[in-house]
C-alpha cells in the first residue's frame, strides 16, 4: 500500500516515434504544480527504457502520451513490459484515444485514460486515484 502522504513520483514518457509532446509537457507541469515529483523521460522511449526508469526512480505510476493511433499496440506492450519486469505500478494513457478503444485498453491493464480537454483537476485526481488503488 502506498502511503498517500508521501510525494507521488510519476514517470512520464513518449513511447515510440510519436513526437507530439505539447500535451505531455503541459501535464508534467500540472502534476508538478500539484506537488508531485515528475520524471519526464522525453521522446522516443522504448518499453525497456521506461521500465528501467521506473525501477531506478522508484516511481509510483507511469504516464504515456499517445497521439498517433498506435495506442492499441503500444499501451498493451507497455503493460506487458512492466509485468515482465515484475513492476507493479499502474499505467495511465493520455492523448487521443477514441471511445471505442477505451474498453480494450482497460482490459489490457491500462489503469486510466485521459482524453483531450481533461482539466488539471481531473488529471491530478486521476493520478492520485490510480496510485492509491495500486
Amino acid at each position: 500500500m502506498t502511503d498517500k502522504t508521501e510525494q507521488i513520483r510519476i514517470v512520464l514518457a513518449k513511447l515510440g516515434l510519436d513526437g507530439h509532446d505539447r500535451g505531455i509537457k503541459v501535464v508534467a507541469r500540472m502534476l508538478r504544480d500539484a506537488g508531485m515529483e515528475v520524471i519526464y523521460l522525453g521522446l522516443r522511449q522504448t518499453t525497456d527504457s521506461i521500465v528501467a526508469a521506473v525501477e531506478q526512480e522508484d516511481a509510483d505510476v507511469v504516464g504515456l502520451s499517445m497521439h498517433n493511433a498506435g495506442h492499441l499496440t503500444l499501451a498493451p506492450a507497455m503493460v506487458e513490459a512492466l509485468r515482465q519486469g515484475d513492476i507493479d505500478v499502474p499505467l495511465i494513457v493520455g492523448g487521443i484515444v477514441p471511445d471505442a478503444d477505451v474498453e480494450a485498453l482497460e482490459q489490457a491493464g491500462v489503469a486510466a485514460i485521459l482524453g483531450p480537454g481533461a482539466s488539471a483537476e481531473e488529471v491530478v485526481a486521476t493520478v492520485r486515484s490510480v496510485v492509491s488503488e495500486a
Binding site: L17, A69, G70, L72
Partner: peptide, 20 residues
C-alpha cells in the same frame, strides 16, 4: 510516422504506427 522518421515498416520502432 515511421516514414517521417526515416524508418521502414518492418523496423521495431514502427510497431503500431504503420499507415496510422
Amino acid at each position: 510516422m515511421p516514414t517521417l522518421m526515416g524508418r521502414d515498416s518492418d523496423s521495431p520502432w514502427s510497431l503500431g504506427e504503420v499507415g496510422r
